[in-house]
Amino acid sequence: MGGSTQQGSQGGGSKFADDTLRPVTIKQLVESDEPYPGAGLAVDGIPVTQVTLIGQVRSVKPQATNVTYQIDDGTGVIDVKKWVDAERADSGATAQFAPDTYVRVFGRLTQFSGKKHVGAHFIRTIEDFNEVNYHLLDATYVHLYLTKGAAGGGGGGGGGVGGDAAGDGMFVDGGNGAARQSAGGPARLKMCGRNAQSLFAYMQRMAAGDEGCNIHAISQGMGMSTRDVMAAADELLGHGMIYTTLDDETWAVLDY
């Protein structure tokens, strides 16, 4: 006890006090980075400690010391490692979750050899699918609070974040429709390169409906190489301006 008190007086206690549990999407975790060397991984510029996420098990890889689950929440995919407790192995505490099962994960984001994964403290099955929607709303609220400030606060500290601050950057295709409309597509389009802006304007003129436009038709119609079209489409996808439809080479414009 004496050693613990001394450690706390040297700053260990305050670091523990800053340990928080944050709801996140997998895309946020995959795109997290270090603000500066040694700072630890951060989401929205704020260091992440404990995180909780919800997703679907895609694969299970049992090993001697841990079980690795590949989890997909629709925004991205990440490995979740649950370490095996040898003393509790016979108690069912290390029971595995079957593929396609929806689970909630509580753990800590870790990076090893440049690859991020979540070290899980606890994993449980989702019994009510409404919890998936609740989690996404919760993650969106926290993201908005940290990037734009409290509701009614006049924009808070995140006024300069741009369209991504409206929650779009948390999802592959822009996520919440209301957030997309309030963020304003034209503002994000100005952040794109010249080819991406031309591609977006061309797809709007084509008005191909829900099926969208294929890369080869776009390349022929715009007189651009397929490589340039693909690069422009990736940029628009990253900003939540378009989404894939029939396959990875067919896109449609999001309706703002």
Rank of each mutant, 00 (worst) to 15 (best):
residue 137 L to W: 13
residue 92 G to M: 03
residue 67 V to Y: 02
residue 156 G to K: 08
residue 182 S to H: 10
residue 101 T to H: 04
residue 148 K to Y: 12
residue 65 T to P: 01
residue 111 Q to R: 05
residue 101 T to K: 12
residue 79 D to T: 00
residue 185 G to A: 10
residue 175 G to F: 12
residue 66 N to S: 05
residue 123 I to F: 11
residue 112 F to T: 02
residue 175 G to S: 02
residue 49 T to Y: 14
residue 110 T to L: 15
residue 105 V to F: 13
residue 171 F to Y: 15
residue 175 G to Y: 06
residue 184 G to T: 00
residue 174 G to C: 09
residue 99 P to A: 08
residue 74 G to A: 06
residue 175 G to K: 01
residue 116 K to N: 11
residue 108 R to N: 07
residue 72 D to F: 13
residue 72 D to R: 00
residue 183 A to N: 03
residue 51 V to A: 14
residue 98 A to H: 08
residue 81 K to W: 07
residue 92 G to A: 04
residue 63 Q to K: 01
residue 58 R to W: 14
residue 107 G to E: 04
residue 94 T to W: 05
residue 132 V to P: 15
residue 172 V to H: 15
residue 173 D to R: 01
residue 175 G to L: 08
residue 151 A to K: 11
residue 99 P to K: 01
residue 163 G to R: 05
residue 60 V to R: 09
residue 112 F to S: 02
residue 51 V to H: 07
residue 165 A to D: 04
residue 92 G to L: 06
residue 88 R to Y: 12
residue 103 V to Q: 08
residue 134 Y to R: 00
residue 139 A to H: 06
residue 180 R to E: 06
residue 123 I to N: 00
residue 155 G to M: 11
residue 90 D to N: 11
residue 71 I to W: 03
residue 134 Y to G: 00
residue 53 L to H: 00
residue 171 F to M: 02
residue 138 D to A: 14
residue 109 L to S: 07
residue 119 G to W: 14
residue 67 V to T: 13
residue 85 D to Q: 08
residue 152 G to R: 02
residue 144 L to M: 10
residue 103 V to P: 08
residue 167 G to C: 03
residue 69 Y to K: 01
residue 181 Q to H: 10
residue 168 D to A: 04
residue 130 N to R: 10
residue 109 L to Q: 09
residue 129 F to S: 13
residue 53 L to D: 04
residue 106 F to M: 13
residue 90 D to F: 13
residue 82 K to N: 06
residue 94 T to F: 09
residue 112 F to P: 00
residue 180 R to V: 12
residue 151 A to S: 07
residue 145 Y to W: 15
residue 89 A to D: 14
residue 127 E to Y: 12
residue 79 D to F: 04
residue 95 A to G: 02
residue 102 Y to C: 07
residue 183 A to F: 02
residue 176 N to K: 08
residue 165 A to I: 02
residue 95 A to F: 10
residue 151 A to G: 11
residue 163 G to T: 09
residue 176 N to D: 14
residue 83 W to N: 02
residue 164 D to Y: 01
residue 69 Y to Q: 08
residue 100 D to G: 04
residue 82 K to D: 11
residue 49 T to I: 03
residue 82 K to T: 03
residue 182 S to W: 04
